[in-house]
Design a binder for these strands. Structure first.
Lengths: 250, 250
DNA sequence: ACAAATTTGTTCGTATGTATG
DNA sequence: ACATACATACGAACAAATTTG
């Protein structure tokens, strides 16, 4: 006989990682709590601290643990956060969508600046490269927890005072509807996924290399002119984009 | 004097990782080529092999390098693979979509079995839990390169001979249209992102922890009965889901 | 078909640096 | 200032997979 164990014994660090996952999922270590220190755990598992650290690093990269230098290692709070169902259709309204699901929406303004459009953005906005645009970056929260980071671009030629207006009317949907009196429709949405950037990781409260859903949207007015181009990065673990015909006919 | 550099010097492994990225992106190490061995590189950078390995591990986790035990470390072939634009609408046709973009589609059958529906799948398919269903898992390739892994579920009550039929008619769209004579429409698509599972990583040829786009689809016939439930995992780096009104009205 | 060399993978040990309370 | 806890780095040895002779 060739061998008894087709599944060759796994490396120590993998078995320890599995044990850690199990303890977290079984509630031996509870959400938010500190797990024993590396010294204690390596002693307990009877391995070198490096081996233990490797296991922790793996589990942390999966998002179940959070490691803070000088403080300790903590069970990530992956509480029963039901995913937000986010319909993508002709009208996409963050605040309405969330409120319909009993979730309290909030925006935090991160940046609001003007700049010349680079080639890529100009193409998407159907303007000349170098034309001045407004860029607004906001953190979208659901029940106080980070859900998305949205970068939006607007043509200044059409909305010269948009940055000032945004202070009074923080909702972009309402800004278009009530101030500029133009309808705001989604022409196209491109969806892909990426590993989170370091900056977004900080804003979204996720660890490095977790996936984000990236939605690139072009919004137009009634005459099909581009009035907003936006790139939104959603926490993948909290978001489910919903695509169905009804979204687009109504 | 305490120090000259307020911006504390980054750790060695990070600086080496940066250097490796730079060399890859600048073409010093070309796509598919083997990079020097760990022994050579650690010597060259003047660091311990562990430190060098950590840098390589980081860059590999970003998808720029592939490490094969016993063979060597290679620059990942992230050639100018233009993302496949994959429209999500009322009709979703893998083969047609790709051919329209000048890309040659192909399917490889991975599994085709029958099994009782668990609660989750039964709910999605609007059948009783435990009812027998067919499960078909296929690898979708674009110009010979892995693009997606699709798991599809069909009610056996409606299509008792579907597994046999699939051998003759490998295209599911065509199978419904030509054999079963029923129209095949997308009712809903839910899109999210996840870190790739170990098995999908192997099938898709990506490294562990890279993101995949997950599209969960419910397809119905003309009477709005569910005839297929599917979960498809797309390589995120090769896929751009496209959502626009035209997809759904026509 | 086998043995040796090559290359990456795992584990231990030791030392020192950095952040926190 | 001090102790605690995680972070980085070096060194040594052996295991596992692959390629080469």
């Amino acid at each position: 006989m060739e061998d008894m164990e087709l599944q060759t014994e796994a490396p120590l660090y993998l078995r320890i990682a599995q044990e850690l996952r199990h303890n977290i999922l079984e509630g031996v270590y509870k959400a938010g709590e500190q797990v024993p220190t590396e010294a204690v755990l390596s002693e307990r598992f009877g391995v070198n601290r490096h081996t233990l650290r490797r296991a922790i690093g793996l589990v942390a990269s999966e998002g179940l643990l959070r490691v803070d230098q000088g403080r300790g290692t903590f069970v990530a709070d992956i509480s029963p956060t039901v995913a937000v169902r986010y319909p993508i259709g002709e009208r996409v309204r963050f605040s309405e969508t969330l409120r319909e699901q009993g979730i309290e929406p909030r925006y935090e303004l991160l940046r609001a600046i003007t700049l010349p459009a680079n080639a890529r953005i100009a193409e998407k906005m159907e303007i000349r490269s170098g034309e001045h645009i407004a860029m607004v970056e906001r953190l979208g929260l659901a029940d106080g927890r980070p859900l998305k980071v949205a970068s939006s671009y607007f043509p200044l030629s059409r909305f010269p005072d948009i940055l000032a207006r945004l202070n009074e009317t923080p909702s972009i949907s309402r800004l278009f509807a009530e101030v500029y009196r133009c309808d705001h429709r989604r022409r196209t949405t491109l969806v892909t996924a990426q590993a989170v950037s370091p900056e977004d990781a900080r804003l979204l409260g996720v660890s490095y290399n977790m996936p984000v859903l990236v939605a690139e949207a072009v919004n137009t007015d009634e005459e099909n002119r581009v009035i907003e181009y936006g790139v939104t990065r959603f926490r993948a673990d909290r978001t489910e984009l919903v695509i169905q015909p009804e979204n687009l006919s109504g």
